[in-house]
Design a binder for these strands. Sequence first.
DNA 1: CAATTTTCTGGGAGCGTTCCCAGAATAATG
DNA 2: CATTATTCTGGGAACGCTCCCAGAAAATTG
Lengths: 344, 344
Amino acid sequence: MPKKNQPLNLEDIAERAGVSRSTVSRVINNEPYVSQKTRMKVEQVIEEVGFTPNPVARMLVTQKTRIIGVVIPHTLDDVFDDPFYFPTLLQGVAETTNANDYGMLLWLGQSDEDEARFHRRVLQNRLMDGLILVSIRVNDPWIEQLLESDIPFTMVERPRQFEEHVSYVGLDNVQAAQMAVKHLIGLGYQRIGTITGALDNYDALDRLDGYKIALENAGRDVDETLIADGDFRYQSGYDAMQYLLSQGVDAVFAASDRMAMGALQALQEADLRVPDDVALVGFDDLPGALRSKPPLTTIHQPIRQKGARAAEILLNLIEGEITAPQQVILPTKLVVRQSCGGAD
Amino acid sequence: MPKKNQPLNLEDIAERAGVSRSTVSRVINNEPYVSQKTRMKVEQVIEEVGFTPNPVARMLVTQKTRIIGVVIPHTLDDVFDDPFYFPTLLQGVAETTNANDYGMLLWLGQSDEDEARFHRRVLQNRLMDGLILVSIRVNDPWIEQLLESDIPFTMVERPRQFEEHVSYVGLDNVQAAQMAVKHLIGLGYQRIGTITGALDNYDALDRLDGYKIALENAGRDVDETLIADGDFRYQSGYDAMQYLLSQGVDAVFAASDRMAMGALQALQEADLRVPDDVALVGFDDLPGALRSKPPLTTIHQPIRQKGARAAEILLNLIEGEITAPQQVILPTKLVVRQSCGGAD
DNA sequence: CAATTTTCTGGGAGCGTTCCCAGAATAATG
DNA sequence: CATTATTCTGGGAACGCTCCCAGAAAATTG
């Protein structure tokens, strides 16, 4: 028998096993009401010919694809100045999807593509049971559109709009930034500046808030001239640090490690020592933070878990295990190294 | 009219436009033999209700999914010591898939998952028209299995087995490594060592070959004691450098920038100056190479294009534009910075 | 052991498309 | 204006599953 390249189907298996299509289907889906004997026979045939049911046909009837989308809009160049974050997050998502036999469709916004087109492509492609939104900008229409479309989705930042209607896995950014700044205050620094992340980003806003709150809690005034706008990237940290030096600071909280490293560079070029002349705290705890000179005091965040949890919530939403939006805040912790001083 | 949440189908559109299902299908697929008048009418209705045809139903009949898979087997921890590579490659792939309205299904092998299970999940999931294989290890069964299964696929490294049967986009690694080492020779270094990549990786093998060839071409003997095994990662570069110092070297070619940076660290700790005491050349031209101290001489490779081209070839293969396997070698170039000396 | 319940099995319908074919309408021909 | 060629249109069949229902077989009852 010439086995032509085998798109076998249920009926073929049924025939070979001497049963009906329906029975084979029952066996495959582990349904009850199949006698032990026929079940074994069918399983044997399936094993023999290496049959896998056509997922597309199944999707068509069940109206479920077992695919989730991961959307990273806007060009990645921003995100990728810290290329560590994104792959780690994806690994977290994959952890969950792999374990639950879901697929993961990745949507990367292209720099030269207009946003509307990208939105349409993703939203109209009705191939996904749900979506994970990564690094959504403040006021981005994604959230609203998705809420209307009633496609289940989760975010990996705490949004500020629609917060109670949206599922997300976030950090206690405010709290974390507060910890960092409080630590600097505790060490006796007087003029503590900050380098913010891109202020169209939810995390950046929260970290800035945390900075302010920490100062206020310590009974200090927030000096707006000590707040330098950055965008999470190395270069912006470098530039911001130069500005802050002109303002006079003795400590700086940077909203990302990449910026802290940029700041470090600026300080070194100005022949200033860290932490003796200026203390530095970052955020993220990148692998490189450990190796910088001096090693960077920073806030550790569990990126991988963020992805994994976000995917878990999404799957629960999809499978109707839960129906109300779910919000999770993952813990961060302050990792004290040498860049903030006070260790000795 | 209470618009219940709208899974409209062709027939619904047909009704509203006063035509038949078939005609609507023709309009959507831009087929001829539709009168201008009805075409306009149908298009208007589609626009009005915002209809998109169900992709799953379409897949079922056309037997095409317009989805490609990107497979990164094995745990990513290796790959992610250099997290830059992988996202950049994905961006390249996305460039092509976005432009051609394909989706990109990402498969990340999980560390705790056995390989066989992973293979099955990806191969049996007949949801992809083709695959891109990233960072496949030497002798990995993937290649053979895929060749048998006649699923179109491309690789982003030049494999050493089945080379003529496989489509790939690679680098002229041998040539590139040769350039690097030749450059060191030209600068007069005498004891030139190398730190290899993980030797179960095709690129690593080629780069090692290039190193040897360069020495031979210069009429020198290859001294095996000056070849230190690394695995592309920072730490391995550090360790290997310490070994090479014990052997006595005045220049080192590292098969990745990450390892070169690790080596740099080892050199600094040994109070040796680069390039005065030991010269260093890396591979990859990571963004960080520019910022290391001293800036790293390295081989630049077009990662993003690699992804884009691999995807292009795959789509051609899928759509039958080409049928024979296609091999592409992308150019690399030597970027001379300070770490190799001779600049002044 | 007849009557009822329970387990098991097969076939029809349907998911929403595309493809194919036949027939209607229109245009081009002698 | 009859005939042929061409454009246009609609409906059946198929893709490969799951779901539902009805009927057969087996197990459980009084």
